[in-house]
Nucleic acid binder design. Structure first.
Lengths: 341, 341
DNA sequence: GATTTTTTGATTTACGTACATCAAAATTGG
DNA sequence: CCAATTTTGATGTACGTAAATCAAAAAATC
């Protein structure tokens, strides 16, 4: 049996009350006594029974999720996963609140972050907009001892405790290699469709993509990036236009959302030519396109895993517990038509 | 606040003791009274606080893991992950015992399974050997109400509650498409290195692989399977021999273990020719080979995820709780040199 | 050495559930 | 209707921890 508070009290030759004072860093314990207790804890290998402690404390974990108000299928999926987590909240003792902020608006995000310390959540997850002000606001909250994880989009250089999302540079590199290898010896041009270059994840994907393309596939030329603002209509217009004008396009990399428009453009304009297409995010549309060979590979991040991971990490940080690193690594899923879930 | 037993007692107009009798299916409750309580439970949406219940019961989850005594790096990794889980067992209230059985020996596995019902574990995870006797033994245990999950290798057609492993047919299909697409318009022959055709996962991978190859890449001919018995020495010998004899080989699919030998053979015999290679299982050796371009893609199943998933599912089944299906789906990882963890 | 202050001990209640015991009430059978 | 039986209630203890109270002991101060 694992040792209990009674065991350490006995081992340290002190009372239960003193052990409790040490464990919960309450005042009124002499230094030497505290040491005795801590020694006993170490020697017996005592670890607090979190379940029993939570029961006694009546503890819940008030968590806040801060999301951009973006109307694309990935964000809808992310929202849905958070709602699923809310349904589980009684069993998991969580109390989840979501706050929507205007997308790509650092100032709005900062003001939400600044108001947050007042209602004392025990953890914060945010889809970060990459800006110095946001970084400063996050760092301040971290210094105030709030557990913070970034979700989907990271805030590098900040003090956030954890990032629950994929490595977007690696994603871009992977897309480049898939496209390059699938195209083989062919020479030609590659169209890149992004949402916006103001978003860090899109910039990073592009960065990884161009790096590998330049280094390893010199026969493929990357055309100027089309910014579709994650909007199907805009994406459709841009891609259809590019395909009409440029007969040399043999590959497409879609690194953002709005793939519905991309797919429509491909079906209209590319019936007679062989295009190799790599896109991000598995949705009903991209899935269908993968199956009918309009798209050749889909890179995906699992929003459900990201949300569950963020919650696990925030709870663990709030309790000062360790996380299982390998479990919390969000993987880049690569789907071909053969390994669809 | 979520309702407690006191709340249902009050709502049903009965005593705590009666609620307890209903909840824990103890005898001595009239039918009408039981209904009243069950109605109250439903109406208040009561769910038992598993943490408190486990505390009161002093419950632990005695689990048994049955593994083949195979000396390859995947099984070593699986063992290591189970040891990690054992380290977490006090926090997770698990009590994990592993039993090694001779590999590919249905009779041995069956006899272990038959002795198992005696020491009453609350859950069983096994790497299944695909044989009718094993299926019968598993079904019998399921009927005796033991939660059972298959690990890594499934037992289709049996009553096991869950499979914690990848879809090996999909894995084989994915390997075929990667190889086919990477090779592009080239014509030639494909060498396949397997462990043994007696193992179900290897058979399934091959099945998926040949199906896609036949349907979609008719210019690529699959050579007779080399059975390396998951042994690096044997694998080395077989692959080196095949490469020497057959100059038409342009691709290799290694669907089992023993990749150390494969890699050595590739480095010795294929310096002057361009081979495209897809292998299974990410190990130190395959990782290095992926980085130095000896291997082009690695398909992988994460043993840590499989073990943790098996434990979560067994605990949930033991408590009669639902599992989060999407969380427990073991994904096929595809690694290129760009997205290595 | 007396006084104040700090430290420690002893004890109790609580969290939500499990489980046991004994008495009281309700139901059933004859 | 009485006895036997079944069903229900009341109550207490336990699990491991948190948190509070009050008294007692020890240390520090003058």
């Amino acid at each position: 049996m694992r040792p209990t508070v009674h065991d350490i009290a006995a081992a340290a030759g002190v009372s239960l009350a003193t052990v409790d004072r040490v464990l919960n860093q309450r005042p009124g314990v002499r230094h030497v006594t505290r040491e005795k207790v801590e020694t006993a804890i170490r020697e017996l290998g005592y670890v607090r029974d979190v379940a029993a402690a939570n029961l006694a404390k009546g503890r819940t974990y008030p968590l806040v999720f801060i999301l951009p108000a973006s109307d694309n299928s990935f964000m809808h999926g992310l929202n849905a996963e958070i709602r699923q987590a809310v349904l589980r909240s009684s069993a998991e003792r969580t109390d989840i609140r979501t706050i929507e902020v205007p997308a790509f608006d650092p100032a709005a995000l900062v003001s939400v972050l600044e108001e947050l310390s007042r209602d004392k959540p025990c953890g914060i997850a945010l889809v970060a907009t990459d800006a110095p002000d946001v970084r400063a606001a996050v760092d301040r909250l971290v210094r105030e001892r709030f557990p913070i994880v970034t979700l989907v989009s990271d805030l590098t250089g900040s003090l956030r405790h954890h990032y629950a999302g994929v490595d977007n540079i690696a994603a871009g590199r992977t897309a480049a290699r898939l496209l390059g290898r699938f195209l083989g010896p062919r020479k030609g041009e590659i169209a890149v469709l992004a949402g916006s270059m103001l978003v860090r994840d899109h910039r990073e994907r592009l960065e990884g993509f161009t790096a590998v393309m330049a280094d390893e596939f010199p026969d493929l030329a990357i055309l100027p990036v089309l910014e579709g603002r994650d909007d199907p209509e805009v994406a459709h217009m841009l891609v259809a236009d590019a395909l009409s004008r440029n007969a040399g396009i043999i590959g497409v990399y879609s690194l953002g959302a709005g793939n519905r428009g991309l797919i429509r453009a491909l079906k209209e304009k590319a019936v007679d030519r062989v295009l190799t297409v790599v896109a991000h995010e598995l949705t009903a549309h991209t899935r269908a396109a993968l199956i009918d060979n309009t798209i050749d590979a889909i890179l995906n991040q699992d929003a459900g895993h990201e949300v569950r991971s963020a919650i696990r990490v925030l709870k663990a940080k709030a309790d000062g517990l360790a996380v299982i690193e390998a479990q919390e690594r969000i993987r880049l899923d690569i789907f071909l038509k053969d390994n669809l879930p």
